[in-house]
């Protein structure tokens, strides 16, 4: 079953130089293991292909049911050098939440995940 990340997680993003960070938080703690499994570094790098020029780092915060991603080369030079509308990376959060996650039917049912429309 396809599940929208938007329906199972919330997120906030910010900047550090030319790097955007995206913190992704499971809406329910019991959904965190799914995020942890689905949002690999490779999957996130593939999602942002063509959007960022550098690599992706991934950190786990099970205490907050959250993952933190650093997206390098995301902000057109960053800070005042950047010409981008989103020079501070404020809405990389919602760009991340566009991702669709594949979940086995029985697991989706057990976790009561909302299906993608």
């Amino acid at each position: 079953m396809k599940v929208r990340l938007l329906d199972i997680a919330h997120a906030r993003s910010g900047d550090k130089g030319d790097t955007a960070n995206v913190g992704v938080i499971a809406m329910r703690p019991e959904w965190y293991p799914l995020l942890d499994r689905a949002l690999t570094r490779e999957r996130v790098a593939a999602h942002f292909r063509g959007v960022i020029t550098g690599g992706v780092e991934r950190f786990e915060l099970p205490n907050l049911s959250a993952l933190n991603f650093l997206l390098h080369g995301a902000l057109g030079g960053g800070g005042t050098l950047s010409l981008k509308t989103d020079a501070q990376g404020k809405v990389f959060s919602t760009a991340m939440l566009r991702m669709l996650v594949d979940v086995p039917e029985d697991e989706a049912k057990r976790l009561q995940l909302p299906a993608a429309p």
């Binding site: 780092e57 915060l61 907050l64 959250a66 933190n68």
Partner: peptide, 26 residues
């Protein structure tokens, strides 16, 4: 939680002049 992850780097090492805080212990 949304604010805690804002502008976060490596959560194990939030470096300040006074102390290094470990955000994975919060």
């Amino acid at each position: 939680a949304e604010q805690l992850v804002y502008e976060m780097g490596d959560p194990h090492s939030y470096i300040t002049p006074d102390v290094i805080a470990d955000f994975t212990t919060i």
